[in-house]
């Protein structure tokens, strides 16, 4: 329900998706797969699915693809989603915007631990409902401590609680990310706008990045992730919230499918207390720059030299 509400507030499709759709159609026709257009009986659908899977299996790493190849794989994935789950997804491969570097700031004096951010993230990013995957963790903290690992990450009671405060953690999108260095296949990298992403189709599932992350920012798909068809967020990005598969790594992408269209990430959008500040670090007039300039800010495990793009501050 909630994701519908979020979806309705979104502006209509951008042109790129439609363009890729047309392009994909012509490719399909050229390929001459007879069942593609008419596609009546199940055998033809099955063979179409096999053909699409076959092409998907041999595709390149996303970063090596030309724009044409990116559009083609998006088109195949849209068709596969239709065949498998019966939903019409809209997938984008929108590139980073020039002169944008995303940053995040978290106000530890304001957050009351309501967890609306966690819920919004699960809905927006099509997170596996079966294993209850969550990108965001909120820790209930004792006064006098500033290290989330000393807090309670499993609290389950009415909030706010007297004399407690709350710290949220997620992927911190480090400039010097140990996970990127660790990956043996370059399946994870930092985009020019600062978002650390995973090419799910290129990841071989060795989990070395998970071991390398000092912030526990990564999640592995131990089984086949499950989201009920009616709850799937149809607005997807190739590097973002598209459906993952078993055996691959995933993580927070600062909601790349939203933020590259100028919207806030779902967590910042959902926060009822205004504790989550997100914006362009290269824009001197942005709210994030105001926070960094005027507030006392700090970062988690600064001594590791990872240079996260995620700050904590207090009023």
């Amino acid at each position: 329900m909630k994701d519908n509400k979020i979806d309705k507030s979104d502006p209509p499709e951008n042109g790129r998706t439609r363009r890729s759709f047309l392009k994909g159609l012509s490719i399909a026709a050229a390929a001459g797969s007879a069942g593609l257009v008419t596609g009546g009986c199940t055998g033809e659908v099955a063979s179409e699915e096999m053909g699409l899977k076959w092409e998907e299996y041999f595709k390149k790493n996303y970063r090596l693809m030309s724009q044409k190849e990116k559009d083609e794989t998006v088109e195949r994935l849209v068709k596969l989603a239709k065949i498998r789950v019966g939903v019409d997804i809209q997938m984008s491969n929108q590139a980073p915007i020039n002169n944008v570097l995303y940053g995040y700031a978290f106000n530890i004096s304001r957050c009351k631990g309501y967890m609306d951010c966690v819920e919004a993230c699960v809905q927006e990013n099509n997170l596996d409902r079966k294993s209850k995957t969550q990108y965001i963790r909120l820790f209930e903290m004792e006064p006098g401590k500033l290290d989330p690992s000393t807090g309670d990450g499993k609290y389950h009671h009415e909030v706010p609680v007297e004399d407690k405060f709350y710290m949220g953690v997620q992927c911190f999108h480090c400039e010097n990310a140990p996970c990127i260095k660790a990956c043996p296949t370059k399946a994870t990298w930092r985009e020019p706008d600062g978002i650390v992403v995973v090419d799910y189709d290129w990841c071989i599932g060795c989990r070395y990045c998970l071991a390398a992350c000092p912030y526990w920012g990564r999640r592995f798909n131990w089984g086949e992730p499950q989201v009920p068809a009616e709850e799937i967020n149809l607005k997807q990005h190739y590097l973002g919230n598209r459906m993952r598969m078993k055996g691959v790594m995933e993580k927070c992408t600062f909601c790349v499918q939203r933020t590259r269209q100028g919207k806030l990430p779902a967590c910042a959008n959902a926060c009822p207390t205004g504790s989550r500040i997100f914006g362009n670090l290269l824009d001197p007039d942005s709210e994030i720059r105001f926070v960094l300039k005027t507030k006392k800010v700090f970062r988690f495990k600064e001594e590791l030299g990872t240079d996260p793009k995620f700050w904590y501050f207090m009023d």
Partner: peptide, 16 residues
């Protein structure tokens, strides 16, 4: 490995 069929992604030349 989570994706043993994708092990060719690691082979220099055809993979990365």
């Amino acid at each position: 490995m989570g994706g043993p069929l994708k092990v060719w992604h690691m082979i220099p030349g055809i993979g990365l």
